[in-house]
Design a protein around this nucleic acid. Structure first.
Lengths: 217, 217
DNA sequence: TTCATAATGAAACACTGTTTCTAAATCGTA
DNA sequence: TACGATTTAGAAACAGTGTTTCATTATGAA
């Protein structure tokens, strides 16, 4: 089989030949399909994302989606990764603060806002909205990348002696689990009133900060 | 229409007449169907609980399930309530302790054990395993009943001045959300290693107790 | 140009929750 | 008990899902 991994050039402009041009085209198509799926999801919720509906929006047969993504789980995984990017962007938009407790507060607020502004993404990522999708190495890594800001400030706070606990990932997971718990009970309808949920959330953030940023333990 | 709400008696033995005998029979059938659904669920997971499969196990047409439960959501709701009973039983099996912090620890352990022993129930109740099912008043009340032990000790601890926070439900929800967060991230595959999840869980319980049972705030 | 390979796209498959619809059973009344 | 009305049973069909077949078409390599 022909291998054209070395890209030729015409007048200094790089030119992609087969099969790269094809793969590039395929990747472009994939992006369009993901975008279509995302728009359906954000408008009608994750349960509205069906292969047929996405295919209809793309005006293509369902087979093409299966050729490109393998299965619905493959498409779900891409939506998951898309959500990780959005969460990462949301965290990056939070201005850094010298005081780690204040910075953590703002990041906590950003996580809450993300769950409100991108509820469908949140449910896909952490709510099990697509039962087909099960996290694996790549997606777990993507979450880790998204949570980078939190990991960083906790790591620094440990290094600087603000937090007595020694394992940063343990602390981050404790924080994450607590925040997720409140959000998920709210989104799941178990804590229906939003103001109540937000009050709980803010109290949790306060408690977490008090718990970890203490000198007396 | 005939009304036989007054139950006649023959030789002192109570006899149920139509339509009670029929309703009774229907209720018995419902219980059998719920039991069949539960056994499928515990053996193959919530996603394996389909109306057809339950009907097959009961050797009856699907229509009968629809006649008795209205929809799959109706059956899901019954499984939810069944789960609440099991959780309630699990909590009641925890021996009371004079020290509320020790008692809370044991109840926390029982909640963890419940999520391990009845994972399918847990996912139906709090994990959104049946997307059809959305909590409403009756089911929210059932959860409240199941969490009664925790509500009681928090209420008492507040009355006795061990906890400075004044709203028992707020404290209970904070505890519940935190514990649920860890369990759900674990069951969702985001914290895969069980020992890690349990370590997080135990740390959370410790932190919660430290947070609420403090004299200095 | 020719041929082997790969992609397309409609249709079918196996499943889901749910609803018809006819036949049978059941109940209140005469 | 016998009849007529109402309800119920149960098979089949409907509309939807994820996925796979398979004949056709297009495509790249020789």
């Amino acid at each position: 089989m022909h291998n054209s991994s070395e890209v030729p050039s015409i007048n200094g402009r790089k030119v992609t030949t087969y099969p790269n041009v094809k793969l590039q085209h395929a990747e472009m198509l994939k992006l369009n399909i993901i975008e279509a799926a995302a728009s359906i999801m954000q408008e009608h919720g994750p349960e509205a994302v069906t292969i047929r509906r996405v295919a209809e929006k793309m005006e293509c047969p369902t087979k093409i989606i299966y050729n490109l993504f393998g299965s619905k789980e493959g498409l779900a995984k891409r939506l998951f990764l898309e959500g990780c990017k959005l969460l990462s962007t949301a965290f990056q938009a939070v201005p850094e603060q010298a005081d780690p407790t204040l910075y953590l507060r703002d990041l906590g607020q950003a996580y809450w806002d993300f769950s409100r502004n991108y509820t469908s993404y949140y449910m896909v990522m952490f709510g099990g909205a697509f039962s087909e999708f099960k996290p694996e190495e790549e997606t777990l890594l993507a979450i880790n990348t998204a949570l980078q800001q939190i990991i960083t400030i906790i790591t620094q706070a440990i290094e600087q002696g603000f937090i007595s606990e020694k394992d940063p990932l343990l602390v981050v997971n404790l924080i994450w689990a607590t925040l997720h718990g409140t959000i998920h009970l709210h989104l799941g309808g178990h804590i229906q009133h939003e103001a109540t949920a937000k009050l709980l959330y803010d109290k949790s953030v306060t408690n977490l900060i008090h718990t970890f940023f203490r000198s007396d333990n």
